[in-house]
């Protein structure tokens, strides 16, 4: 049994199944983070005693740069596959993975600094929001890393048998990855700068 339009595009929609699927998933993710952003806004406007401790802006700026770079390497990995350059794909997706690792390590240092200043989720509602949102975002980064590692390693065997399908997989992984980047782009000013 073969599912139609798994690899090739359906003529009237111009999409293959996975692409529609990932965009639907991202739509639901928008609503997930939307719920958190909405909560953040409400709690902040509703609390006259709102208090925001200083967070490390330089570290977060660095992390923003790291995540943006990883988005570029991801999209370059996909472009390399479309240029039939498997070696470059390997290179770029490895770079993506390493940049994601760097992001998580920096995040770890940040958390550590905060703990050492006795800032915990229970300290106040800002810290609660901060840890919940960055934590959930971090989980998304982790999930993306697993997929990227898989496509770099064992998953890449598919390139030999079904190159187009493999390219599609990299494309939709990229879409997810850029979304994670996009969330961070909003988290960064919302949590660190304002």
């Amino acid at each position: 049994m073969e599912i139609p339009y798994n690899v090739e595009e359906r003529p009237d929609t111009g999409l293959y199944n996975g692409k529609l699927g990932i965009w639907l998933f991202l739509a639901s993710e928008v609503m997930l983070f939307g719920g958190l952003f909405s909560s953040y806004i409400l709690l902040r406007t509703g609390d006259p005693n709102w208090f925001k401790p200083e967070l490390s802006v330089p570290m977060a700026t660095l992390n923003t740069m790291v995540l943006i770079s990883s988005s570029v390497t991801m999209v370059m990995a996909w472009a390399s596959l479309r240029l039939q350059d498997f070696k470059k794909f390997r290179l770029f997706s490895a770079a993506t993975f390493l940049l994601a690792c760097a992001f998580m390590v920096i995040k770890g240092f940040e958390y550590n600094t905060e703990f050492s200043h006795h800032l915990y989720p229970s300290s106040n509602n800002f810290m609660a929001t901060y840890f919940t949102m960055t934590g959930l975002h971090g989980l998304h980064v982790l999930g993306g890393m697993v997929v990227i590692a898989y496509l770099w390693g064992p998953g890449s065997r598919m390139w030999k048998t079904e190159p187009e399908r493999f390219t599609n997989r990299v494309e939709i992984t990229g879409l997810y990855w850029h979304f994670v980047d996009l969330v961070w782009i909003f988290l960064f000013p919302a949590l660190y700068l304002l």
Binding site: V30, S71, H178
Partner: peptide
Amino acid sequence: VAAFFMHLLSERKLIYAVLVFTVFFFLALI
């Protein structure tokens, strides 16, 4: 990011439709 990395600029109408709905409900939620 959305326009270039996620190549939304050259995406299909169907995806736009899904996203328009999502943005509307997102705004309602906020």
